[in-house]
Structures are given as structure tokens and as C-alpha cells.
Simulated assay, not measured.
Amino acid sequence: MPKLRAETHQPVSVADAPELVLVQPEAERRRGLPRPLRRAIGPVLLVALWHVLSVTGVLPPTVLAGPATVLSSAASLWATGELQAAILASLGRAASGLAIGGTIGISLAVISGLFRLGEDLVDSTMQMLRTVPNIALIPLFIIWFGIGEAPKVALIALATAFPLYLNVYAGIRNVDQTLVEAARTLGLSRPAMIRHVILPGALPNALVGLRYSLGVAWLALVFGEQVNATAGVGYLMNNAREFFQTDVIVVCLVVYALLGLIVDFIVRLLERLLLAWRPAFSGA
């Protein structure tokens, strides 16, 4: 029978220990400028080109005012308080329409996505109505609601309801079936399964629908504020159009763009907070 040989372990000194090397991801090694600066390069170049064309006379002021004139007009509107009042009025309309349309769209999507009977009763109607151009309904809204704030809010609500409905419905129906079966195997009740499995699984699609709905809300707001508006960014734009003030028109367009950019940034923050559990590809 072979004899067992005892092995002696010599203590390893710190100097003999292998050196730990920090491995840096390839994306970080190739990173140059910070992302906010890189994202700003395109808009800065566009404004610089606009300025050059205005200074050289390629773009006359009657066609498009230059950046310096636009900034001066924006400062004047801000000093008089007109711009702040217009922004608040437009934000109020957009928020009211999004709240109404979002509530309707999400509620119908949950009913249609969770229940087959709900899908049979709701989905075909929603698919039919979403193909109707929203702008074509403005005359009916004026007849139904008058020429006050109601038709503007109704137009925004209608425009924002369908993107949220489609994305939330798709998110619910695209939840991994194996997760649902695992929840049933663990004995989760139907309300608990909806809360802990289905709704979190549908959240990414819901946030995509929210981002799309916010973009559509600004588009509907532009059309809605053409209907006998007495306040708002669209009201300023209409007055500027009558007096051929291209600088004020550009100020209003920039305000629409900045508001859309701000709300999109807010939704991106929500995605980072609510979807921190879901690793995703962030670009090479």
C-alpha cells in the first residue's frame, strides 16, 4: 500500500504574491470627450452654419433671422414676461392632455393585455381609431367643445393615448412565458403575478410609449394652439406670422424643441431609475 506523503506548505510572502491588474473595459479605454460634449457638437455646428449663412447674406432676415437677432428677441420677450406666460400656458395644456390620454391609453392597454375578453372588446376598436388622423378631428372637437381650452386638451389627449396603448399592450403580451409559468409554479396568486412579473416586464415598453407620447404631445400642441388660442407659444407664433417676424417664430420653435428635450431627458432618468435591474446594450 503506498505511503501517504505529507506536503508542507511554505508561507507566501506579500512580495511573492501575484500583482492584481485592474482590467478596464474597452469602451472606457476608447472614450475621449465626455458624452454631453459629444452630443452638443451637432447642435453647435448647426448654429454656427446658420450664423455664417446669416452674416454672409445667404439667408436674408426676411427669410430667416440670424441667431443674434433670435437671441435678442428671446431676451425681449423674456424681459416683458410674455415668453414665460406662453411657456406655462403650453405646458399646462400638454400636461393636462397627456394625463387624460395617458390614463385612458394605459387603462385600456392593461385591460386588453391581461384579459382575452378585454382584447376582444377593446383592441379592434383601438386599432381602428388610431388610423384616423387626429388633425381631421379638430372641426368635430370645435363643434363638441367650443373654441376654448377643451378642444386643445382633447386633441393632445387623443394623440397621446394611442402610443401608450400600443406599447403597454405589446409589453404585457411580450412578457416571457417562462417567467409566468415559474410564478405559477411558485404559487403566486394572479394579482401578485401581475404586480411582480407582468407589469415589471412591460415597464420598458411603457417607458418607450411615454417617450413617444411626449413627442406626439408637442406636435398636437402646435396644431391645437392654432385654434383660437389667446395664450401659449402657438399664440406667439401666430402673431409673429401675421407681422412676418421670423425671429419670434424661430424663438417659438426653439422653445418647443427645448421643452421636448427636457421632458425626454426626464423620461431617460426614469428609465435609469426604474430599469436599473435590467442590463441593456449601451452602444459600442
Score class of each variant (00 low, 15 high):
residue 1 M to L: 07
residue 4 L to A: 07
residue 5 R to D: 10
residue 7 E to M: 09
residue 10 Q to N: 10
residue 12 V to W: 02
residue 22 L to G: 00
residue 28 E to D: 15
residue 30 R to P: 05
residue 30 R to A: 13
residue 30 R to S: 13
residue 32 G to Y: 08
residue 32 G to E: 09
residue 33 L to F: 11
residue 34 P to M: 02
residue 35 R to N: 08
residue 38 R to C: 05
residue 41 I to S: 08
residue 43 P to G: 07
residue 47 V to D: 14
residue 49 L to R: 10
residue 66 G to E: 02
residue 67 P to Q: 05
residue 69 T to R: 15
residue 74 A to L: 15
residue 76 S to R: 13
residue 77 L to A: 03
residue 77 L to S: 01
residue 78 W to Q: 14
residue 78 W to D: 13
residue 79 A to E: 15
residue 82 E to I: 00
residue 84 Q to V: 14
residue 84 Q to P: 10
residue 86 A to R: 01
residue 88 L to D: 12
residue 91 L to R: 11
residue 100 I to Q: 03
residue 102 G to L: 00
residue 103 T to W: 09
residue 106 I to N: 03
residue 106 I to L: 10
residue 122 V to K: 12
residue 123 D to W: 07
residue 126 M to D: 03
residue 126 M to K: 02
residue 127 Q to Y: 10
residue 134 N to S: 15
residue 135 I to V: 15
residue 138 I to Q: 06
residue 141 F to T: 04
residue 142 I to G: 09
residue 144 W to N: 02
residue 156 I to M: 00
residue 160 T to V: 09
residue 165 Y to I: 00
residue 166 L to M: 14
residue 168 V to L: 10
residue 171 G to A: 06
residue 172 I to P: 00
residue 172 I to Q: 01
residue 175 V to N: 02
residue 177 Q to P: 09
residue 178 T to Y: 11
residue 179 L to A: 13
residue 181 E to K: 13
residue 190 R to S: 09
residue 193 M to A: 02
residue 193 M to S: 03
residue 198 I to Y: 01
residue 200 P to I: 01
residue 202 A to V: 04
residue 204 P to Q: 00
residue 205 N to M: 12
residue 214 L to D: 09
residue 220 A to T: 02
residue 223 F to R: 02
residue 226 Q to M: 06
residue 228 N to Q: 10
residue 231 A to D: 13
residue 234 G to R: 00
residue 236 L to Y: 05
residue 238 N to D: 10
residue 246 T to P: 01
residue 247 D to K: 01
residue 257 A to G: 04
residue 259 L to H: 09
residue 262 I to N: 08
residue 262 I to P: 08
residue 263 V to E: 14
residue 272 R to S: 13
residue 276 A to Q: 02
residue 283 G to V: 07
